[in-house]
Computed example of a mutant assay.
Amino acid sequence: MRRNDNSRRRRQDNLFFFPQLDERLVEKGVQALKNKQYVQARDLFEQLHELDADHPQAAYGLSICYVELGEYERAEALTEDMLKRDVGDYFDVLRLHITVLIQKRRYKKVIEMIEAVLEEGDVPPDLEVTFQQLAEFSKVRMEEKTTSEVIQDEGHAPHIGREPRDNIDLSGLSSIDPEQQWLTIQKLQHSLSPEDYPQLEDFLTSDEGDPFIKSIVLKTIKDSGFNGIIRVKKFGDTYELTPEIDILFYEGFSDEVKVKIKEVLASDNPTLCDLAEQIWQHFIVAVYPKPLEPDNTDVWAAACSLYTYQINGIETNQDALIQLLNVFERDVQNAVGLIKRVEESASGKKL
């Protein structure tokens, strides 16, 4: 439910005797967050939240403070309320809410929420891939849980990580444990500061970093407003990017490929078509910013369709597919080879 005129009038009444109080509280709260002074920031945002429960910055800032201070019960309740009442940016709040659920190891609820959101559609492409991976990650974690973890899943957050921290342990990005990777990313997405950039570039230019995780870090850096040049190494090559102006994940081109995949597969095998689209979406995030050669949407649609057939053990008439899209077999085989290489090295295949 969106804010109405009555809530706006109530807010004006609350602040009538204190002009611009809300602006001052937001400014001080945001600055405290940037300085990682989470207790001070929490107190400031709580003041504003008491005056106006519908103030998006107050509610979102307060939620972040709760997470950083390990107050997961309060963070879950507040973000859930924000989602129900449509306070703040929906996907930002949803991502934070899922972060809290993962911290509490409530994997079943994570899966249910993500599946419902993806079914509704209209999810930004980069978030769609992230949500899909988090859902897969949660499914694996549910299968691995011990009896003690089942107890935690009923609403009790693990003790580890509940103490306030001064900075983010970025070593989690290089962890072989997918849970540590994802939790580090979730923290970065709402707590990234300029002092973290050098460490992040060290991770991005390392030889061992997961290509999919590197791309999510790039997106996080772009969202943080970084306006410089940053380097990333993938598949043996190093690229320089300007996140502020560069278009991520082949936007536009990738959409055209998805349209062509539907033209090839949707009518004969809708299930396979959905899988091919998921593979393509994961691939373009993991492979970015490596140039896609040739720059031909038909080639990549044919390659992704053919790869999807192959990994599912389904025979298909490759020549007919190539003829249908009017592409060269050599180009398609090279593209299939790259998709296979990327998919086997990226995080989606390690969960």
Rank of each mutant, 00 (worst) to 15 (best):
Q180N: 02
L218V: 10
K104M: 15
L192K: 09
V67P: 07
V100L: 00
G252H: 12
P164F: 13
I176A: 03
Y197G: 06
Y250A: 13
V39L: 08
D295C: 01
R341V: 00
H49M: 09
E154D: 06
E256K: 07
G121F: 03
G348V: 03
M1T: 14
L192G: 08
V259H: 11
N269W: 11
A346T: 04
K290H: 02
S267E: 13
V332L: 07
H55T: 06
E143I: 08
D13K: 15
I247Q: 13
D255V: 05
G29Q: 09
T146I: 11
V129R: 07
T308C: 02
L48S: 11
G29C: 13
D298I: 08
M113G: 00
L101Q: 05
K84R: 14
D86F: 01
G161S: 12
Q180H: 05
H55W: 09
A53E: 14
H190K: 03
S7H: 11
L33K: 03
G70I: 10
E244D: 07
Y197T: 01
K28A: 15
L62N: 04
P294R: 04
E112C: 03
E163R: 08
R9Y: 14
E251L: 06
L241K: 13
Q132W: 11
V123H: 06
V140T: 14
Q189L: 06
L15I: 09
I213Y: 05
L25C: 08
N167W: 00
A320F: 05
A41C: 14
N296Q: 01
I314N: 01
T184V: 11
I221Q: 11
Q318G: 05
Q40K: 15
I176Q: 01
V123K: 12
E119V: 05
L272T: 02
S174K: 10
Q278M: 04
P56Y: 07
A116M: 14
I176V: 07
D177G: 06
T242F: 03
Q323I: 09
T220M: 07
A346F: 04
K34T: 01
K219Y: 10
A346C: 15
R95F: 12
N312W: 02
L134P: 04
D237V: 12
G225L: 12
L127W: 08
T238G: 01
E80S: 09
D207Q: 02
D126E: 13
R74I: 04
F226M: 06
K84Y: 08
T130Y: 04
L78G: 10
S193F: 09
L188H: 01
P291F: 02
A135G: 13
L44E: 12
D298E: 08
L325C: 07
H97F: 14
F226S: 04
K139V: 02
I261H: 00
L248G: 11
S175F: 06
V232Q: 02
T242Q: 08
A301W: 01
S191Y: 05
V217Y: 02
A157W: 01
E343P: 00
D153I: 05
A58T: 07
S148C: 06
A41N: 03
S305L: 00
C65E: 02
E263N: 10
K145A: 15
L21M: 10
Y72K: 14
D298R: 15
E263K: 14
A302G: 11
D223Q: 05
V342A: 03
D207V: 03
R11M: 14
W300P: 02
